[in-house]
């Protein structure tokens, strides 16, 4: 079983596909769950505090907006932990949305820099592309160690 980072990290469809073909998805749900389940914090809605953008300094310098660094504090550790990644470019908002374009650029760059197996796709624009899109994801996940054929 491989740990697969998904982009957009909020995509429930991608998360479900990764699980379905035998792997563990690394996405926003994992990072946010950790925050909201940490006892003693009271910082709704995500339970993020000003310490999180400071943790994000590991991935982006202080002149980078705090929102980018805060997001990187969530996604950066997941990228480091990942064995593989699926990137879906130009996804529809309904498919998954990361909110900040600058974070998106940095997240995708850091994934590509890792040198792990990556499936880089464009979001399908028609049914035919959609079928090929799912098939490509299935093939990629099945080929990863521990993947379901």
């Amino acid at each position: 079983m491989a740990k697969v980072f998904i982009y957009p990290a909020t995509s429930l469809i991608l998360s479900d596909m990764v699980e379905r073909w035998g792997h563990s998805p690394l996405g926003a749900a994992v990072a946010v769950r950790e925050h909201i389940q940490t006892p003693g914090l009271d910082s709704p809605p995500l339970q993020m505090t000003p310490d999180d953008p400071k943790r994000g300094l590991k991935y982006a310098a202080v002149e980078v907006p705090s929102g980018v660094r805060g997001r990187m504090s969530l996604f950066g550790p997941l990228i480091e932990e990942a064995d593989a990644a699926i990137i879906v470019n130009d996804a529809d908002l309904a498919f998954g949305c990361m909110g900040c374009a600058r974070t998106n650029e940095l997240v995708k760059y850091l994934i590509r820099k890792r040198g792990i197996p990556i499936l880089d796709l464009v979001y399908p624009a028609c049914d035919e592309d959609g079928v090929a899109f799912v098939a490509a994801i299935k093939a990629f996940l099945s080929d990863l160690p521990g993947g379901v054929p």
Binding site: M48, G70, C100
Partner: peptide, 15 residues
């Protein structure tokens, strides 16, 4: 807005 939740300042706005 864009970013207050991830900057950890949404609670400050609420307060």
């Amino acid at each position: 807005s864009c970013g207050p939740e991830h900057s950890g300042v949404q609670k400050e706005i609420y307060d």
